[in-house]
Write a protein that binds this DNA or RNA. Structure first.
Lengths: 363, 363
DNA sequence: CTAGAAATAGTAAGCGTTTACTATGGAGAA
DNA sequence: TTCTCCATAGTAAACGCTTACTATTTCTAG
């Protein structure tokens, strides 16, 4: 045993990591041969190959992914941009992305915007720097035209570089912008659950949560309104209260609304987290759910079934959404043009009925 | 407007992305000057710099991160390896890592093992290929000696390459293995909450969940036993039921245990998810918590306070754990040798008392 | 004025791979 | 026996950046 490396200690090479040249030297061949033996796309004599693999393990060699990427091979990485890693909505989508990516032999670069549009743009650029095979942008988007234009520019740049931008659960950037899309039926789910509420006899339904001017909010509200219209119930602006997603918002806004003694029999939380906050505010005031007030949410995140009463909500196949996003991203379909063709995929939503809704109290 | 690019369409460069040479040509300078203007670590005349930046935006240029990494600059990336992105325990740690990394100007490569040891080793190699500035390994570990040895080899390889391996919430790989560690007081938290249960009068406490031969399980059980010992309560092996983390395990195992008519007045769920499952099984049988049986969990993940009754549990500062991990990883401290020195950091845990514990029923 | 120090810009040598091309040594064909 | 064709292996040219050196100007001080 020369130096300080012991035979039982294969990976501990000297210096800052062995290169392919070291392996070549150790095996007594050229670097080209090592490269070929490793990638296996070119014939290498069996004996040579074995000698090379032995040197590889002896030296603890791993290829430098950057050199490899630079030399033309693909990066084998997909990037995903979400709002927040710890928000279950995003976490489940990320899980789907991560799983599908690794099933297709890719790494997964997960980053978070924390709701900052500028940061989102910057992150897309970062992924572009990383030359990821695709970048998946998740969650509702702002409809600020300047922002849309900047994102469209990036979509084009990505496309020009052979990568692709896939929009997951967010609206198109416009015709002609090269993107792929996978969405879920936001409007339909909102329609269905509102209709369910109405069918139970509710007429005055509060809508709480979701950032204003945000695509997700817009489509959920659209479904909400469509259901109202379909049953001939008048839209009452004083009943819709946008603001934010998140438990804290649901809780505090519900408290305020309770103080205002508004007349309602049911509450539609913009997502399950908001609904959780609403439930807490209600519980705090001694208002029983569903006997006094019915509550529904959206997403069917795991916490929905931990709440008491268990929350009636709209199920969104989050993990599936993530998987489809990478399938689409990695498929050869030449992302292109408009919203139709096979560059768009919509997964369905359906309501799941649990215990937070009943007929309104006939007061 | 030449070609098809319009002046309002800056990023859409022709071909597969502009290179630094394109920018240099457009600005009429050498690539070296562009590189310097961009990195800003060398004087460049103001007029030149402006010309360069204009070309950069005109062409939608972003540097090729791989070329940059290859040319010697650091990769500015930290890798984190967790079990599952959608498990809140890991998700919150990941959030801390992600935030601190981005605060320190790094990207974050998040990968998941799904509990597969082999995959974990492979992922470390993958990160080594990526030349990440550090790799953070999160969560309990197996104590299989072969595995430990392989991981130790990788720790050395990483160290040799100037990177570092930080163990987050898992035991040391042994003296002399170059790692950094950030842990939380698992044993102490388990002791505290067990002692709390005992102080309420419980004597027969069921311990449910957590993989056997897993470091986290081992230290939680150690705390559990120490508390029992301290109060002179006999250890009863028939009361401890290891198995897995996760809601499903808690639910099904609790059902089995209920069928066996074992004598107990409290249940210690190995983590909050297990506790959630336990609660459901109990509710299903009409057993009231805490009147009939008390339940506690571990981690204080958000769902703990959504459960009814609200779960009394041990708070682990998950996000802080993640932040500290990257602080430590990126600090210059020459990770080295044993478990002491400033390469190890332990954050405290404390119990949070909610509604799932009361004095046992005097039957 | 002029030597010497900034300030600014250019040249070119890597960084570690992949891969098109080229070279060599038999095996089988003619 | 000579020629052609495989199977193997080597050479060297990218890939797109950073940076140590070197080469100009332009000041500034003596």
């Amino acid at each position: 045993m020369t130096e300080k490396s012991s035979p039982t200690d294969p990976i501990h090479a000297r210096g800052s990591g062995a290169t392919i040249a070291d392996v070549a030297q150790a095996a007594g061949v050229s670097v080209a041969t090592v490269s070929r033996a490793l990638s296996g796309n070119y014939p290498v004599a069996k004996a040579t190959r074995e000698r090379i693999f032995r040197s590889v393990t002896d030296l603890g060699y791993v290829a430098n992914a950057h050199a490899r990427a630079l030399a033309g091979a693909t990066t084998r990485t997909v990037g995903i941009i979400i709002n927040d890693v710890a928000d279950p909505f995003f976490a489940y989508i990320a899980r789907g992305v991560e799983r599908q990516a690794s099933a297709e032999g890719r790494m997964c670069l997960i980053t978070a915007t924390h709701g900052d549009k500028e940061r989102e743009l910057a992150l897309v650029d970062l992924m572009r720097e990383q030359r990821t095979d695709a970048v998946i942008l998740v969650g509702g988007a702002s409809d600020d035209p300047r922002y849309r234009k900047q994102m469209a520019d990036r979509a084009r740049a990505l496309a020009a570089a052979g990568s692709s931008l896939v929009l997951c659960g967010r609206p198109s950037l416009g015709v002609g912008v090269p993107t792929k899309m996978v969405t879920y039926d936001n409007e339909g789910g909102a329609f269905a659950i509102t209709d369910y509420l109405i069918s139970q006899g509710h007429r005055r339904i509060l809508y709480v949560g979701g950032p204003r001017d945000f695509s997700t909010t817009a489509s959920r509200l659209a479904g909400f309104y469509r259901a109202l219209d379909a049953r001939g119930i008048e839209r009452d602006p004083s009943l819709v209260h946008e603001g934010a997603f998140g438990r804290g918002f649901g809780y505090s806004r519900m408290r305020e609304l309770l103080d205002q003694a508004i007349d309602f029999t049911a509450v539609f939380g913009a997502n399950d987290l908001v609904a959780a906050g609403i439930l807490e505010a209600l519980e705090e005031r001694g208002i029983r759910v569903p006997q006094d007030v019915s509550v529904v949410g959206y997403d069917d995140v795991p916490v929905a079934s931990e709440l008491r009463p268990r929350l009636t909500t709209v199920r969104v196949p989050l993990e599936e959404l993530g998987r489809e996003a990478v399938r689409l991203a990695l498929s050869q379909s030449p992302h292109d043009a408009g919203a139709s063709s096979d560059n768009t995929l919509t997964v369905g939503t359906h309501i799941v009925i649990r215990d937070s809704v009943s007929a309104p109290n006939k007061t």
